[in-house]
Design a binder for these strands. Structure first.
Lengths: 348, 348
DNA sequence: CTGAAAGCGCTTACAG
DNA sequence: CTGAAAGCGCTTACAG
């Protein structure tokens, strides 16, 4: 910028004005500066210097607790991203994807967060004890956590999971089912598959799964059923391949007329595995999911529908507001039972 | 940082070393500095200042010629993103999504590009005369264009569209079809739907569509058919809703035994529209797509498969190499005919 | 092992 | 309408 100023015979401030404050320069002066700048191959003010000076980057960071490759394959994440994208589109904000999977080298992930040039963070579904999230909070910029964790003084948006889960289980119970199994995605990041002990459930770092389980159990208790008598089977992951394998194991081990799954992906895996064994819902068994992804309706799945896109949109708006100086807020969105062809009355 | 240094009674440089060059400080000194910094609520070096100093941001920018909301709904874009994501995962790089749709306020989009804090750009499917892309090139950082445009001295990766299209049309011709229609997504950004004039085709700003059309026509000519006798119907957009409407119009206006589509999304729309009218492929008609998205195989669609994920991965690697100082390169990936249940011999 | 100092490239009150 | 100057918060050769 200094060089351009010299070549034009003006002050460096004038060059800055030419690019940023057109109205502060005579139009000939401005045109002249821009022309010479172009000739010299000067591409405009350096963004790093500008953001150092102004304290603004014009970008938001999205912390994702997964490898990007997997996250972009996950339907719920994609719905969320679309909601966030709406606000980015409308405000000309860049969205910086920051993959910070638990499995990776934590030092590198923390550094990624510390060095990322953003005005604030959206933290999607981070574990409650995340050092990466701590690093983001330490940055002193606004943070909005999505789904988890809930932190005092930090904006949060999530789903009323317990209420939704209770309604889901109640639906199954009202259909007369008593031989029920619960399929849950992941209690801890160690990829364990199998029946979950009470200790493991208690120590889970996934508040969503915990809340949903709590909701199911509340419904069981209300129906006079000992919650501990209903088996809880942990999948150990989120994607459909793992889900399918877990569904297979579960069906080998448990005889149930209904499966309650903590996500649509798991429920669809159960449907596919059942179909492979020659059983059809709702005649032979029932299965209910959670989330309301697009694939759910394609599979005719009964599910607790959550406002996924809306959640992303509101989260981005909350971040924008927080950056503008508004106080933090906690928002809980409602779920809605969507009955379809995968649940029906228990036989007998 | 200065404040922390004072509180510790050390130089500001030492604070910097404590965070960045652990080996340059005695471990007690370092621990002490980090402890006091934490107490003071200092979250580590400011990223803007650091990037101004080092000239590095640790992020790549992805220019997308669409609203984010739509782009994240487009299968080919998602495949590409997954490929790029692989490299980001492996290198702990942030990926900054920069939506720069043609429809928006161009000044704001240019500003978004000028201000984005990235070490280089991936430019996905930008029109040949894009001022937004010019702004990215003017930044003086490495740029890799994907699919279009091809610019001398700028890294480029794309598909051999003409060859792929020629093979696609040849497949249809070899099956004996002569009453053929071509369905093409968008020649110009004005969302026009209808038969495309030769003038419109010549002036198209979409080099991909042009190349594919050229390939089809080469195959026609080789078979002794006047290319201009084959109608070209323009959809005016990319998503499945618009595609479906266009397919309906086309089928109202043209009698054809085969439809050649420039994308799988369009081909699937034709299949659905045909099914709604009671016609089934390959018995009643044939349709061939292009790209090889996941939905294509789910619909049993014959298509020219392109390495979508691979393209993203290589593009990101090329950008990384360019940032590391390696010279630019032009890469053309091959396509492969994937025969499925949507094409068969012409009747009669 | 630690410090003093230069300089990265801007923006913006302030003065004229 | 234009300029001189401060300062945003760092990193890194250089010196000791």
């Amino acid at each position: 910028m200094m060089d351009v100023a010299e070549a034009c015979g003006v002050s460096q401030a004038s060059v800055s004005y030419a690019f940023n404050k057109p109205e502060r320069l005579s139009s000939e002066q401005r045109a002249n500066i821009l022309r010479i700048a172009k000739e010299m191959g000067y591409g405009g003010p350096d963004p790093s210097a500008r953001s150092l000076r102004t304290g603004r980057t014009g970008a938001w960071g999205l912390l994702i607790n997964e490898q990007l490759t997997f996250a972009l394959d996950d339907p719920t994440t994609m719905h969320l991203l679309r909601g966030i994208g709406m606000v980015c589109d409308a405000t000309d904000t860049a969205l910086s994807l920051l993959p910070v999977p638990v499995g990776g080298n934590i030092k590198d992930k923390i550094r990624l967060v510390q060095n990322s040039l953003v005005d604030g963070f959206l933290a999607y579904f981070m574990p409650s004890n995340s050092r990466v999230l701590d690093a983001a909070l330490a940055r002193g910029v606004p943070v909005v956590t999505i789904d988890s964790p809930r932190i005092d003084g930090v904006s949060f948006i999530g789903i009323d999971d317990a209420a939704g889960a209770e309604a889901a289980a109640t639906h199954i119970l009202e259909l007369g089912h008593r031989k029920i199994a619960i399929l849950i995605d992941r209690l801890m990041p160690d990829q364990t598959r199998g029946f979950a002990s009470e200790e493991r459930i208690r120590n889970s770092v996934d508040p969503i799964g915990r809340d949903r389980l709590k909701g199911y159990r509340k419904a069981f208790a209300a129906a006079g059923i000992d919650p501990l008598s209903i088996p809880v089977f942990e999948v150990g992951g989120y994607n459909s391949a793992i889900a399918r394998a877990a569904a297979s194991d579960l069906l080998d081990l448990v005889e149930a007329t209904a499966v309650i799954a903590t996500s649509d992906t798991l429920a669809i895996a159960v449907k596919l595995e059942m179909a492979a064994r020659g059983y059809l819902a709702p005649e032979d068994y029932s299965v209910i999911g959670f989330d309301g992804i697009q694939a759910a309706s394609e599979h005719g799945l009964t599910t607790m529908k959550t406002p996924l896109v809306e959640k992303g949109r509101r989260a981005a708006e909350m971040l924008r507001n927080a950056i503008a100086g508004e106080p933090f807020e906690h928002v809980l969105l409602e779920t809605k039972l969507k009955r379809d062809r995968s649940t029906g009355p228990a036989k007998g």
